[in-house]
């Protein structure tokens, strides 16, 4: 069973959260081309290794947060996000 630490609620069973997959930078819908938008919508790196992901605490605090997970071993670690101290617990997803 995968325990995912919500920054707010602490460790949660992955089944109580919503998995939103790989974290991408969303292109600006006002200026991007349809191709860029579809690339953002559909294409994925899908690596076997560390992956920055979006999670949603759907049956807890209802916050979105990011976390890094190893897709083979299931290990979790706090992501290094721009503008944040490495190792600090993540906040919500903008």
């Amino acid at each position: 069973m995968l325990l995912v630490p919500c920054p707010h609620c602490g460790p949660m069973n992955a089944g109580d959260l919503t998995y939103n997959g790989e974290s991408h930078r969303r292109p600006d819908p006002k200026t991007c081309t349809p191709k860029e938008w579809r690339t953002y919508l559909y294409l994925r790196e899908n690596p076997s290794g560390w992956l920055l992901e979006n999670w949603y605490c759907s049956s807890g605090c209802r916050k979105h947060f990011k976390i890094e997970r190893h897709t083979l071993t299931g290990e979790l670690r706090a992501p290094v996000l721009p503008g944040r101290k490495p190792g600090a617990t993540q906040g919500d997803m903008k």
Partner: peptide
């Protein structure tokens, strides 16, 4: 299941998650 890994080796990104 491993398709993304192999495709990534050629620089082609797939719409796939495993």
């Amino acid at each position: 299941g491993w398709a993304s890994q192999l495709s990534n080796m050629t620089g082609v990104t797939l719409p796939i998650t495993t």
